[in-house]
């Protein structure tokens, strides 16, 4: 039994498919994605641009716009399928029991409204409380995410905050209703290192204290290494590898995961060439049949042209590959 399957998870995504029906053809942005997150756990959803990680996050929140549509699979939130909820039911959940944090808080905060207006509105959207109580709650939450003198800051406009503070405000808004699940889409990518560390510290504390489950969408493996419990690696709309953080990063089984880890510059390999992945991310509109990674993969064979099943190849290790890199093979490659 792994941590992934133990206890009833807060969220379980099964074989999710979100396709975009554009004039130029069907874009399978998310095509067979499965994972689950438990109470107080952090799942790192990692992938490069265009791998479908953001669309996965949007699908969970029911934010996929036309011409996109969830065409298959289920998103079970405490056993309730979010993919089948009406728009009204999703409204009740969004911002209340499920919240999202976006990459750029300047885009998600309303520039012409003060922070208190925006926060009170959010509180009152889901609970019947007086304005004064709502303000109280807003102030407490701002304090919780480490904003100094929250009383005064409530009266500020978004542009009066620095980037890091703005992201804290966005996180505070997400936390107003003590959600059971937070989907965070690249929330620290635009921030400086010292500010990123502050935000990560707050997030770690909050998850541990409130038992909120978190999906942390990022391209940065190093952040996931330090923050997450589990990791799911996406490539061209599919999860290619999934497991607990330490085993996946220490001994990646999918060649793409291995390539990604090899691409990160680090202390151990100073001056040596990085283990780069040849070629570039494929166009999701024209994916090769079978394994989408095979054109860039050193281990690809004839069999890779067939549809690759996603399954457990070792205890707690799920991989979508015909040739998982077990240690013997990795030694061979090195």
């Amino acid at each position: 039994m792994t941590a992934l399957t133990a206890a009833a998870p807060t969220l379980e995504v099964r074989n999710l498919q979100t396709h975009f029906f554009t004039r130029a053809g069907v874009v399978k942005a998310v095509d067979d994605v499965s994972f689950s997150v438990g109470r107080g756990k952090v799942l790192g959803l990692v992938g490069e641009s265009g791998s479908g990680k953001t669309v996965t996050g949007f699908s969970i929140l029911g934010l996929v716009d036309e011409p996109g549509r969830i065409v298959g699979g289920s998103i079970l939130f405490h056993g309730q399928d979010l993919a089948k909820q009406s728009e009204e039911q999703m409204r009740q959940l969004r911002g209340n029991r499920i919240a999202m944090i976006f990459q750029d808080p300047m885009m998600t905060l309303n520039p012409v409204l003060r922070i208190d207006t925006q926060m009170i509105e959010t509180v009152q959207a889901h609970t019947k409380v007086s304005k004064e109580e709502a303000r109280q709650r807003a102030r407490d939450t701002l304090g919780m995410v480490g904003i100094p003198s929250p009383d005064e800051r409530l009266k500020s406009y978004p542009h009066q905050f620095s980037g890091g503070m703005r992201q804290r405000v966005a996180i505070a808004i997400a936390l107003l209703h003590r959600p059971e699940l937070i989907v965070a889409d690249e929330p620290t990518t635009a921030l400086d290192v010292t500010i990123q560390a502050q935000i990560l510290a707050e997030v770690q504390k909050l998850c541990a204290e409130t038992g909120t489950a978190m999906i942390w969408i990022t391209h940065d493996l190093s952040v996931v290494a330090g923050l997450a419990d589990d990791i799911a690696v996406m490539y061209a709309g599919k999860v290619v590898e999934k497991g607990e953080v330490a085993p996946v990063l220490d001994m990646p089984l999918h060649p793409y995961t291995a390539g990604l880890i090899g691409s990160v510059p680090s202390r151990n390999k100073r001056g040596e060439p990085l283990k780069q992945i040849p070629g570039m991310t494929p166009n999701v509109m024209r994916l090769p049949p079978g394994c989408a990674f095979r054109t860039r993969c050193a281990y690809a064979t004839e069999v890779c042209k067939q549809e690759v099943p996603f399954g457990e190849v070792a205890p707690g290790r799920e991989v979508r590959c015909f040739h998982p890199l077990f240690p013997a093979k990795q030694g061979e490659a090195a």
Binding site: I195, A197, L200, D229
Partner: peptide, 24 residues
């Protein structure tokens, strides 16, 4: 020192981030 200790590293697992106080 602060900068170096806060850089997320791929070989650091379940790190507790501390953060230098304050803003730039």
């Amino acid at each position: 020192q602060a900068l170096l200790s806060e850089v997320p590293r791929i070989d650091a697992r379940k790190k507790s981030f501390a953060g230098v106080k304050g803003e730039i």
